[in-house]
Computed example of a mutant assay.
Amino acid sequence: MGEHTVKEGTFRHRGAELFYEDVGRGPLAVYAHGGFTGRAAEDRMGLFDWAPVVDAGRRLVRYDVRGHGRSTGDPVDGDYTYPSLADDLLALLDHLDAGGPVDAMGASMGCGTVLHAAVRAPEHFSRLVLLLPPTAWTTREAYARHNRESADTIEREGADAWRAARTRRPRPAVVADVPDVPPTPDGRVLPSVLRGLARSDLPPPEALTRLRLPSLVLAWADDPGHPLSTAETAARLLHADLHVSRSRADVRTWGERIAEYLSGSRP
Rank of each mutant, 00 (worst) to 15 (best):
M1D: 03
E8T: 12
G9V: 11
G9E: 11
R14L: 15
A16Y: 12
L18Q: 02
Y20I: 02
P27L: 03
A29R: 00
V30P: 03
V30I: 12
Y31D: 00
Y31S: 01
G34E: 08
G34Q: 05
W50M: 08
V54Q: 01
V54H: 01
V54L: 13
D55N: 13
R58P: 00
L60F: 04
V61T: 05
D64S: 05
V65W: 01
R66F: 10
G67C: 09
G67L: 02
S71T: 11
D79S: 14
D79W: 10
Y80H: 09
L85Q: 05
A86V: 00
D87A: 15
L90V: 09
H95V: 11
H95D: 06
D97V: 08
G100T: 12
P101K: 06
V102Y: 02
M105A: 12
S108F: 06
M109G: 11
H116Q: 07
A118Y: 00
A121F: 04
P122R: 12
P122K: 09
E123T: 14
F125S: 10
L128Q: 08
L131F: 10
P133R: 09
T138K: 08
E141L: 15
E141F: 15
H146V: 04
E149N: 06
E149C: 01
A151T: 06
I154A: 10
R156F: 08
G158F: 03
D160V: 06
W162L: 10
W162A: 13
A164L: 09
A165C: 05
T167A: 15
V174S: 05
D177K: 10
D180V: 07
V189L: 12
P191H: 03
S192F: 03
V193G: 01
V193M: 05
L194T: 00
R195V: 12
L197C: 04
A198I: 03
A198H: 10
R199V: 01
P204S: 13
A207M: 06
T209H: 10
S215K: 07
P227Q: 05
E232Y: 03
A235N: 08
A235M: 12
H239T: 09
A240I: 07
H243M: 04
S245F: 11
S247M: 08
A249S: 13
E256C: 08
A259K: 02
